[in-house]
Amino acid sequence: MQTLSRTLFLVALTAMSAVQAAPRDDILAAYTAQAKAEDATFAGFSAARGEALHRDRHSGGKADSPSCTSCHGENTRAAGRTPVGKSIEPVAVSVAPTRYTDAAKVEKWFRRNCREVLGRECSAREKGDWLAFMTTQ
């Protein structure tokens, strides 16, 4: 009986994560289509490139936010902090499974944060790379 309920629990849990993963996959699929349109040689997203984008110090943006980690912190599984001192939910999907499931919200924050950090909007490839990195975290 216990085994059965445990199995049922696991099935339910898997179903739940599948429900949350689906919108994220849709968002990635849309970025894939866009990346292909922007660059014919596009051959898929790279979590490694995403990690570099996330951790590198960039120029072109604002002096007090040269990197994504300026606010989100070095540890992707820990909370970040806004310039005003408010806590930011961790960026890693493993600890924040509901993240990156609302396409409009994802776009809104890429637009704002890429401008802050890079001084320009991110390309579809950069967005997909960054998301690919976060899904491995």
């Binding site: 604002k62 310039p83 409009a104 809104k108 637009r111 704002r112 401008r115 802050e116």
Partner: peptide, 8 residues
């Protein structure tokens, strides 16, 4: 206040 906080 120096930040991009634009919404639709």
């Amino acid at each position: 206040f120096g930040e991009d906080a634009s919404v639709d």
